[in-house]
Design a protein around this nucleic acid. Structure first.
Length: 593
DNA sequence: AGGGGACCTG
DNA sequence: CAGGTCCCCT
């Protein structure tokens, strides 16, 4: 499936839509920035109304003064809103200043050419507390707070985007009016700061646009439209702000407390969290992502593992034993509290008519269950994407990039490391040791239903996602050797049992799907019974049983190598393996099915 | 499930 | 010698 890679332009297909000024600052730093950007230098250089800016103001046209005052008042309101949103939830947390928290982003902002500032800059919800390398000791408390800030930032950016969206509509209407300003101001095109400050007063519907004079010259119909749109925008904005305050703060407290009482995501905690992922999943959209059998889960878990392990915080695997038929809700264990921003981004996307194709890339992944389709398309990625994925994971380790939960999700869709747990060990260059995973084992077991004696060349063609080495090859060979061993032991056991039970005719020994022998074999090779065992296997098993029965009855088992003729017979009964097993990543999916 | 050794074979 | 098989053991 194309589009699963992590090319930013793919991750953010409508990056223009989410484009935010690169130098946009979250939280406390916003005020300063907004001042600088909101007011053209040629006008009042951001004086406070009662702080001695009077001289400059008095030089201005009375109407301009009025306008300035309005603008300043509105700016103050917006700033207070945003600062309020960014305030630390607890006094202890206030020592981590937002300035410091986003300092690196500020630095980056200065280096970027202005046009590229529209690059989407979404905070790393997914990495959050778990995936970030905390430079300063990094107590879990601080991490939690840091993450909250990032969530805020995320929401704020959506606010900006919302406003920009609105202005895309209004721009054409405003063009005539703003042109006269542009002669003195020359604002950068498409800078939301400008726009925000132009219209920030309408936030929460406190005032309407006509006060600002923005719509002064417009025809009344356009004006009505403009006001209606602004009103809608205000309502949406209010909802977002409200939900930030309502949803985030209580959560913040609980998280921070929780983090104080537990070590950062030990194996047990990880398991708990994975299980609890169901509950934390956003309720917003029942479609797509919450769909039972959605493919998000296993890979997401793998990613969770990758991220967790990237911290070296734990080394335990947590292979899911979930049953496929039960509605396995994807457990997006990105990190603490990540569900909320996803929810909001989806909500906003829908509000803005993006539907499933949200700029956060959380496209629907509803699809038939993995085995019905053979192997899922996200897993049919070429090995190159694994490298890409590892690259990104590594980059996130050292230089965390702002990745939204949804983009982390996309990342999760890439095949994890060979081990199926996304261990970074296998992602590090030089140590790119290919390892067979539990998923590969399961795949091999299923393949055993078709072939008992696969050659190494055959194995190579069916484990395309494995970089074969001498070790890998012998490991796989060994697996099948073990499979055969178990298989023959079982068959021999049942053959002897049949003999003891007085079976006379070997031909009466048939292995059916409800026979004990089949159940024993199926239990081992097809645990979970989520694979339709081919009828051919039953025939082979029947024949094996008969051969063993006959041999034992003939007393051939006195010969130490009495099994070898049987092996020879059985080895000729291999059948073709379905092509579906060739799909790269199939093993990953099988592991979780 | 899988490690390891003995043994066979091309 | 490498690859493969079998057997024993944990």
């Amino acid at each position: 499936m194309v589009g699963r890679n992590l090319d930013p332009t793919v991750l953010f297909p409508s990056s223009q839509a989410v484009a935010l000024p690169h130098d946009y600052k979250c939280g406390a730093s916003l005020g300063e920035e907004a001042q600088a950007l909101a007011f053209p230098r040629t006008r009042a250089p951001a004086p406070l109304p009662c702080a001695g800016g009077g001289d400059q103001l008095s030089n201005q046209h009375p109407q301009e003064q009025l306008c300035d005052q309005h603008l300043r008042a509105k700016r103050a309101r917006v700033e207070s809103i945003i600062q309020g949103m960014s305030l630390p939830p607890t006094p202890q947390a206030s020592d981590t200043s937002l300035e410091a928290a986003f300092g690196h982003e500020r630095e980056r902002g200065g280096e970027m050419p202005q046009e590229s500032k529209r690059k989407p800059r979404v905070p790393q919800q997914g990495m959050g507390a778990a995936g970030r390398v905390a430079p300063t000791g990094g107590s879990s408390h601080a991490k939690g707070f840091q993450q909250l800030k990032e969530q805020l930032c995320f929401l704020e950016q959506q606010l900006w985007w919302l406003q920009e969206k609105f202005y895309q509509v209004c721009d054409s209407e405003d063009a005539a009016q703003t042109q006269e300003d542009s002669e003195t101001v020359q604002p950068l095109p498409g800078k939301p700061q400008d726009r925000l400050n132009k219209d920030s007063g309408t936030a929460c519907g406190l005032e309407e646009a006509e006060d600002t004079g923005n719509t002064g010259g417009l025809p009344s119909a356009v004006r009505v439209l403009s006001q209606a749109l602004k009103h809608e925008l205000s309502v949406v904005t209010c909802h977002v702000v409200d939900s930030v305050l309502k949803t985030l703060w209580p959560k913040a407290d609980s998280h921070i407390q929780k983090q104080h009482h537990s070590p950062p995501m030990g194996p047990d905690a990880r398991k708990e969290y994975s299980a609890g992922g169901k509950c934390r999943k956003p309720l917003a959209k029942p479609s797509a992502m919450n769909a039972p059998g959605s493919l998000g889960s296993p890979q997401a878990e793998a990613l969770t593992g990758a991220l967790g392990k990237s911290l070296g915080s734990y080394a335990a695997s947590f292979s899911s034993k979930g049953v496929r038929k039960s509605s396995r809700v994807p457990s997006m264990g990105y990190s603490l509290g990540s569900a909320m921003p996803v929810q909001h981004s989806q909500l906003l996307s829908q509000l803005l008519g993006h539907g499933q194709h949200s700029p956060w890339g959380s496209d629907s992944r509803e699809s038939p269950s993995a085995l019905e389709r053979g192997c899922p398309e996200p897993l049919k990625l070429p090995w190159g994407s694994v490298k890409l994925r590892s690259l990104i994971v590594r980059q996130q380790q050292h230089h965390p990039l702002p990745l939204s939960p949804a983009s982390m999700e996309s990342l999760a869709l890439l095949p994890a490391g060979r081990d199926g747990h996304g261990e970074l060990l296998s992602l590090t260059p030089g140590q790119m040791q290919e390892v067979l995973t539990p998923g590969h084992l399961k795949k091999a077991k299923l393949m055993f239903f078709f072939t008992r004696y696969p050659s190494s060349t055959l194995l190579k063609t069916y484990f395309l996602d494995v970089q074969f080495s001498r070790c890998i090859t012998s490991q796989l060979i060994k697996w099948f050797s073990n499979f055969r061993e178990f298989y023959y032991i079982q068959v021999e056991k049942f053959a002897r049992q049949a003999l003891l039970e007085g079976v006379v005719d070997a031909c009466t020994l048939q292995v059916s799907r409800d026979s004990e022998l089949f159940r024993a074999l199926n239990m081992h090779y097809n645990k979970g019974n989520d694979f339709e065992v081919p009828g051919r296997f039953l025939e082979v098993a029947s024949l094996t049983l008969q051969e063993f029965f006959s041999a034992v009855r003939a007393g051939k088992d006195a010969d130490p190598s009495w099994k070898k003729p049987i092996y020879k017979i059985i080895s000729k009964l291999d059948s073709d393996i379905p092509e579906g097993f060739k799909a790269a990543g199939c093993s990953q999916e099988l592991l979780h099915s």
